[in-house]
Design a protein around this nucleic acid. Structure first.
Ligand SMILES: [Mn+2]
Ligand SMILES: [Mn+2]
Ligand SMILES: [Zn+2]
Ligand SMILES: [Zn+2]
Lengths: 137, 137
DNA sequence: TTATATTTTGTAAATATTACAAGTAAGGTA
DNA sequence: TACCTTACTTGTAATATTTACAAAATATAA
């Protein structure tokens, strides 16, 4: 059990939130998670969602994205990978692993201690870009 | 004049903010800019700082960073370059150009339209990392 | 100089996040 | 199992950032 390993107590709220993030790899916001889980767990508090996300990210279980200035986004996948935000539909896509993080080693060699790395890109996703090009035709 | 070229009127407030960003390449927050300029320009409104930063970034004059979840940071240098945030002293360092953005072409070739690219790294800056290692000794 | 559209300003509203204290529950111990 | 201690959850209030808005001021072109 990943929570026990980190010294965190196993609570229904933490399990629900982790399960939700695991099954919904859409990089949801705190409010999104809260609204979705509140339906089946009416006693859930938004503060709890904040607390759980903080605990999980501080313990390296999940990662928190700041690609968006308006709110943080949550990602169950804590492997280093880049993200693309579509300015049209707002979707956040994962970018393939092959866009690697060699750069981190270069930065380390300069004397930095690198704990976290984020690659954020913005523009139009494949789907919106296709629609956009058709309009131009 | 860069403002005229973009069809933006040349106002003292815009000039002051641009001059400040040009001379202070520390990636200041809105509040930082406001506090600094308010001293010599007591009539300056924080709304104006927000408006000017929006106008300048929408017109590609400056860039806005979301490396930090608590507030946006402003960068007069709008060339693509990566940033490093120190968790100890809070400084934001520019990373060298040689950490290139080849990856953008790869993403484009997949069908995305890439307008903006950001590489954000967090950890300890060179200075704080040195101090940290001495403590361990 | 005058006209017009743009910009600035102050205030208020909206949102996201954090602080806090009281109640609740998890997990260890006997 | 029953109890204890500590960690967690919850609701509310406070804080902080950002946006909305309308009136006043100003830049620029004619
Ligand atoms: Mn992801
Ligand atoms: Mn920079
Ligand atoms: Zn899209
Ligand atoms: Zn530092």
């Amino acid at each position: 059990m990943i929570l026990k390993k980190k010294g965190l107590k196993v609570t229904p709220q933490r399990l629900e939130i982790m399960r939700y993030l695991d099954k919904n790899r859409i990089h949801p916001s705190i409010d999104h998670i809260y609204t979705q889980l509140k339906m089946k767990n009416p006693s859930l508090s938004k503060t709890t969602v904040y607390n759980v996300i903080d605990d999980l990210s501080e313990n390296g279980v999940i990662q928190v994205l700041t690609i968006n200035k308006s709110e943080i986004l949550c990602d169950f996948n804590n492997d280093p990978h880049h993200h693309f935000m579509c300015k049209e539909c707002g979707s956040i896509s994962d970018l393939e692993d092959r866009y690697n993080f060699d750069i981190i080693e270069q930065i380390r060699s300069e004397g930095f201690r690198v704990d976290e790395a984020f690659g954020y890109f913005r523009g139009l996703c494949i789907s919106c870009n296709n629609k956009n090009e058709k309009k131009v035709d």
